[in-house]
Design a binder for these strands. Structure first.
Lengths: 363, 363
DNA sequence: CTGTTAGCGCTTTCAC
DNA sequence: GTGAAAGCGCTAACAG
């Protein structure tokens, strides 16, 4: 079918075939409207026939626009991030950008590599969606004039936009929900406390517990690492306490899945013996056994907000926007939360409709 | 700390600062050994001080080497693929390459886009790990002289390497395992039959059933789509049959998770009422409730084999290697497989140690 | 509206 | 061993 273009077909080949100059080819290919419609058509046809693909590198080199947005995530094997990546890519493609993914795996060296790659490849903006990253590195990108958006405290970084996540709202709803159906002994398994966002979630949990006037004993707060293994280990600790919790709130869904595994492994029933609440609402949360009650943080919200901030910066690099927006979270009640066994009213089904915590029922 | 390099620092700046020519900088940065050690050191220091990062695009443009390997996957939100990506990236980085990810989402248009991107960005090789992709597109890359490796039938493509997965071995072990503990009514939920690999798995299942002289009624073979939703739907169909299966083998783990959800949702017990076997052995398979018996296809094997083939091609593009290797699969027995309820010997625990199917016990 | 020309930042002959 | 110079494929002035 297509004849082998052993001579790599470049813009010159197309120009010759269409009988125009390379400048015209360039203009036509880039949809510049001032090109004569007739010529443009001829160029397009020639390009088609030769199976021409513009060399992105050359284009980026001369134009200074790479057409890429960098996206730095923590680790790709935590399902939350692929979902984020997908959302991000969808939005980016819609606006004519490609994305360049970097994952830090929580390692300082990989973080450096990520940043270096982003700079080298001349991305036009970087979204740091890693929930905690070395500020110096981010600063480096800012200094190089690359628009940056990250998740974190407002204005933590001069010259970078930031996104806040309303951890408090979701955690508050979760604790309220548990309290209403009779739980008081509520434990929390956090993320790695080196991460700012993990600390924020933990703090939000404790504030929520204060608001129901229930102090949290220190052994009820355990540091996890946002993995299933961490959740498993945390739950094992919690379950070997003399005074066991009747509910465990987790810093993310992977942790919750680990807890579910540990609890079931001991022959305990969820939610009868123990309630579990996750955080993120990854797709799989709907399919655990039983389906996971969790706090949703919509990754499409994150993706859209991040891209908005970035593209605004790119458009008006002078008057930096330094956008700041709040990403909402909210409780999704499924079936890992219910009345504690000791509670007067004995029920198997979760108490979704009864709580006053305005939970949203699952899809 | 670092002074703002508002004048983008390029190779010239480094040359000036080190008091050498740009050619020497280039050589020093690329570790060419013929450079005077003294000068090299001076160059490195200058680069350091200026915080110099070579422009990848320019380098690729002139050298023709982009330092990137393309990796095309089906969809990033199926956990198997992130695990594959991770393995692949680890191997690639070890050999001095970066990877460029493309996901097809099973859409013909996205497949085209993926291939276009790979060509435009001048990747030095492409691994098509999508378990079924338009052959014309692959052909296009081959014709452009890009080394390609894909999963599929041996020599299906002139000039491209291919990896075979030994689906038969794993499926055979799975069926044997079930048969030994008393199952005969075994159903299969396939992947989308448009995918070659899905067809292969289904065929391998049927062959395995033949080998135990047990015909499979047509209503026991259902087409899924490799998602949890597909597994759920398939299980629902299977469970509303008058004559229900006592075991369900799935074309991948996501399907199995969907089945688990459906089965549990109906109040049935796994494995007492029904046994479930997955395929892939994604990390999460260890954490389902109960933990999933599954057929392992190690993504590190896939990644390594793919990269080997690619790099061999890159090194000796003339004498094309067209490697062909076989990726093994094997059964990992966990707790979703056990004696069927009707069976004489009634047990709750799985029969891992008893079967003759040489299953490997879980980690 | 189209063509000519000058680079983008870098690697790589080819002389010295 | 080092430097000068010639491009890699393309876009963006600038003339015409």
């Amino acid at each position: 079918m297509t004849l082998k273009p052993r001579t790599p077909v470049d813009i010159r080949a197309v120009a010759k075939r269409a009988g125009v100059s390379i400048a015209t080819v360039s203009r036509a290919m880039n949809g510049i409207t001032t090109v004569d419609a007739e010529l443009a058509k001829r160029v397009m046809r020639a390009a088609e026939e030769l199976n021409y693909t513009p060399n992105t590198q050359a284009r980026a080199l001369v134009s200074g626009r790479s057409g890429m947005i960098g996206l730095i995530v923590s680790e790709i094997t935590n399902p939350f991030f692929p979902e984020l990546i997908q959302s991000f890519e969808d939005s980016a493609v819609k606006r004519g950008y490609e994305i360049l993914i970097g994952s830090t795996n929580y390692s300082a060296e990989r973080m450096m590599q990520c940043v270096r790659r982003m700079v080298e490849r001349m991305v036009e903006g970087v979204a740091v969606m890693t929930f905690g990253m070395d500020e110096d590195l981010v600063q480096q990108m800012v200094e190089r004039g690359i628009p940056v958006v990250s998740i974190g405290p407002k204005n933590s970084l001069e010259g970078a936009s930031s996104l806040q996540v309303d951890f408090r709202r979701g955690l508050h709803e979760a604790v309220q929900h548990l309290a209403v159906i009779g739980h008081r002994k509520i434990a929390f398994i956090s993320g790695p406390l080196s991460l700012d966002s993990a600390r924020q979630r933990q703090k939000a949990f404790q504030e929520a517990m204060s608001s129901i006037s229930t102090p949290v004993p220190p052994q009820f707060v355990i540091e996890g690492d946002h993995t299933m293994e961490g959740g498993f280990a945390g739950a094992e600790k919690l379950l070997s306490l003399k005074e066991k919790p009747t509910a465990i709130v987790c810093s993310n869904d992977m942790t919750a899945i680990g807890v579910l595994h540990a609890v079931s492994g001991r022959g305990l029933k969820v939610p009868d013996d123990i309630s579990i609440i996750g955080f993120d609402d990854i797709h799989m949360a709907q399919f655990t056994v039983p389906p996971l009650t969790t706090i949703r943080m919509a990754c499409s919200d994150l993706a859209t907000a991040a891209l908005d901030a970035l593209l605004h910066d790119t458009a008006e690099p002078m008057r930096k926007f330094e956008a700041t927006r709040m990403i909402p979270t909210r409780l999704i009640v499924r079936q890992t939360s219910g009345y504690p066994r000791q509670h007067a009213v004995k029920r198997t089904k979760p108490a979704a409709k009864k709580t006053s915590a305005r939970p949203v029922s699952a899809d």
